[in-house]
Computed example of a mutant assay.
Amino acid sequence: MVNLRNFDLNLLVIFRAIMARGSIAGAAEEIGLSPSAVSHALARLRVMLNDELFFRTADGVCPTDRARELSADIERGLGFISTAISLQHQFVPSEAKRVFTMQVADYVSGFLLPRLAERLQVEAPGVSFDILPFSISPESVWDRVDMQVRLTPGRLQPEMVRSQRLLADEIVVLMRRDHPRANDPMTAELYAELPHVKLSQSATGTTVIDDALAARGLERHMAMTVASWFEIPDIVAKSDLIAIAPRRLFSLDPRLRNLKASPLPLEEVVFSFDLCWDLRTEREPGQKWLRKVVSDVFKEIRT
């Protein structure tokens, strides 16, 4: 085991920067050192860890297998250290100058973001938000995102991700009112038989539906995949494709009122809106404040 008394933890910060930027020059720019200083630090780290860690390529550097293995643990450890230090500082919303990065599912954004903006312009005018798509690789998402608001989380990493149920909602199946099968009862068999349009995002919990269908020996036919929920109502209205949606969206999108809605015929499937965050930031004051704000907004929605 390495003796931490003789280990410079700044070397791990440099390691993380090289992993993130993929080059010595990029890492130097990120942490404010010269490229030669970063190269010297990497040489020390190679000796301490007895591995090359990175080898040069035409575009920069590429991590060794050992570096890839170490990366998650180093990122986790530095995250815990950063959180422990930040706990000494109080977060004052009215005085804060900070950017929070969130992923918000399309299904949720229509009623969450306007209320969030309204509240923050009064309570925390110096706070900004960067809303990212769910197309980010799951392996790197918690290096870039403070929290997620999503519809039914998938298989989370239990040791690193925490979640809170914000709101449960009924999921309905949408089709145009003059659909050839509009008068047929919506059964699991019919649901699987009809062609579907779905979101490409990974934040919709649709694997839960596929698992429920598979248990019945059924499989959906995905005729179209789109990038945004807001494209779906018009597609359903002009075709024989069907889709799913939370019933709560009917109060937000008038286009849905022209479609037929039937309960999803999979009784065991329960959908909810969930707030997810990284365990490393669970006690960080700014993150705790934001989680409470999001939770309060959903309490208002429920009432």
Rank of each mutant, 00 (worst) to 15 (best):
M1A: 10
V2H: 02
L4C: 10
L4G: 05
L9M: 12
L11S: 05
L12R: 01
I14P: 00
F15N: 02
R16Y: 02
I18R: 04
A20L: 13
A27N: 08
A28P: 01
A28N: 04
I31Y: 00
G32I: 07
A37D: 05
H40A: 14
A43R: 14
R44A: 08
M48N: 06
N50W: 00
E52L: 12
L53A: 02
F55C: 01
F55Y: 11
R56N: 03
G60P: 02
C62G: 10
C62D: 09
D65A: 15
D65R: 15
R66Q: 08
A67T: 03
E69N: 13
L70F: 01
L70Y: 02
L70K: 01
S71D: 13
A72Y: 09
I74C: 02
L78H: 01
L78D: 00
F80S: 11
I81P: 03
S86R: 15
L87Y: 00
K97I: 10
R98V: 15
F100L: 06
F100R: 01
F100N: 05
M102C: 10
D106T: 06
Y107C: 09
P114L: 10
A117H: 11
E118N: 10
R119D: 05
E123P: 00
A124G: 02
P125L: 10
I131G: 03
I131L: 09
L132S: 12
S135K: 09
P138W: 07
V141S: 10
W142P: 01
D143A: 13
R144T: 14
R144F: 12
V145N: 03
V149K: 04
L151K: 04
L156I: 15
L156V: 13
E159P: 00
S163M: 11
R165A: 15
L166G: 06
L166H: 06
D169I: 12
V172M: 09
D178E: 13
H179Q: 07
R181T: 11
A182K: 10
N183A: 15
N183Y: 09
T187H: 06
E189H: 12
L190Q: 08
H196P: 04
V197I: 08
V197E: 05
K198P: 00
S200C: 11
S200N: 12
Q201P: 00
A203D: 12
G205I: 07
T206F: 11
D210A: 08
A214L: 14
R216N: 05
R216T: 05
L218W: 05
L218N: 01
E219T: 14
V226C: 03
F230Y: 11
D234Q: 15
V236C: 04
S239R: 03
D240P: 01
L241V: 08
I242A: 02
A243C: 07
D253L: 08
R255D: 07
R257V: 10
A261I: 13
P263G: 07
E267V: 15
V269I: 13
D274A: 14
C276W: 07
C276P: 01
C276S: 09
T281I: 09
Q287M: 12
L290G: 01
L290V: 08
V297C: 11
I301N: 03
T303G: 14
T303M: 13
